[in-house]
């Protein structure tokens, strides 16, 4: 049974990983720093590990999908990320794909318990 649980856990992780970029892009219209984004995602039901999210934010910034700025006015420096114009274009295309995929999955799941 533990083997089956491991398989299920791996598949769940893969599914989550596959949706993470789009999930992040949907939450970045307002500037977010790493931990506030984790909370925003958790509040909406998506638990993400810090070690997964922080490097992802840097990668998305490198790809030009996010912009970032260090805020040094507070007691400690904090890096804020926000979706870029390219990021918005990419997000809009990804959302179309997501909706198509969702329709397809719903059709395939019809009749399944």
């Amino acid at each position: 049974m533990s083997e089956v649980n491991e398989i299920i856990s791996n598949i769940q992780q893969e599914m989550k990983r596959g949706t993470l970029v789009l999930a992040v892009l949907t939450q970045m219209d307002q500037p977010q720093y790493g931990y506030s984004l984790i909370q925003a995602l958790t509040d909406k039901g998506l638990d993400v590990e810090q070690n997964t999210l922080y490097p992802l934010l840097r990668r998305l910034e490198k790809q030009g999908l996010l912009d970032s700025d260090w805020d040094t006015e507070g007691s400690r420096p904090r890096r804020y990320y926000k979706i870029s114009d390219i990021g918005k274009e990419v997000r809009s295309l990804l959302l179309e794909d997501w909706n198509r995929l969702n329709d397809t999955m719903l059709k395939m799941m019809e009749g399944l318990k």
Partner: peptide, 20 residues
């Protein structure tokens, strides 16, 4: 650059979890 960011993230976690 990476260490600066990790440090900021650690303090964010501390602040959110244990207060400022």
């Amino acid at each position: 650059e990476v260490l600066k960011e990790i440090q900021a993230n650690l303090y964010d976690y501390l602040e959110e979890t244990f207060g400022d």
